[in-house]
């Protein structure tokens, strides 16, 4: 299974990478929204883990909107992982098409369960 992490914090990326790699998932990361979109279009991951506060032209919400607007990857589950915990941001993420929203610090086991549940539901990976 291919997992793309769009996150500018190197430490968080490494932690998620360790978690996912231990389950045999193939993992790539991108430090900005624009790079994340490039990877998503080219690599077509099964799940995208997306931060909201990203450097560069696009924040996580905009990245999510662009993913949903692309015919090739519009159905890819997008899990937002953000330190922002106010309802307005969560509402925006939901409207942008996010599949799930996790606040930092997140539970690694809960995140794994979420991904495995998505995996079961899609039945394709």
């Amino acid at each position: 299974m291919r997992v793309l992490i769009v996150e500018d914090s190197d430490s968080i990326v490494r932690m998620i990478q360790a978690l996912m790699s231990a389950r045999g998932f193939e993992v790539r990361s991108a430090p900005s929204g624009a790079r994340g979109l490039e990877e998503a279009f080219a690599w077509k991951p099964h799940v995208i883990l997306l931060d909201i506060n990203l450097p560069g032209s696009y924040d996580g919400i905009q990245v999510c909107e662009k993913i949903r607007a692309d015919k090739d990857i519009k159905d890819t589950p997008v899990i937002i992982i953000s330190a922002m915990n106010d309802d307005e941001v969560k509402r925006r993420a939901h409207e942008a098409g996010a599949t799930a929203y996790y606040e930092k610090p997140f539970s690694p086991l809960a995140l794994l369960k979420e991904i495995e549940s998505l995996q079961r539901r899609s039945g394709q990976w």
């Binding site: 914090s9 430490s11 968080i12 330190a83 930092k104 997140f106 539970s107 690694p108």
Partner: peptide, 10 residues
């Protein structure tokens, strides 16, 4: 700070 908190949860 985020990494520390995340590490604690792990």
């Amino acid at each position: 700070d985020e990494a520390r908190k995340q590490g604690e949860v792990y």
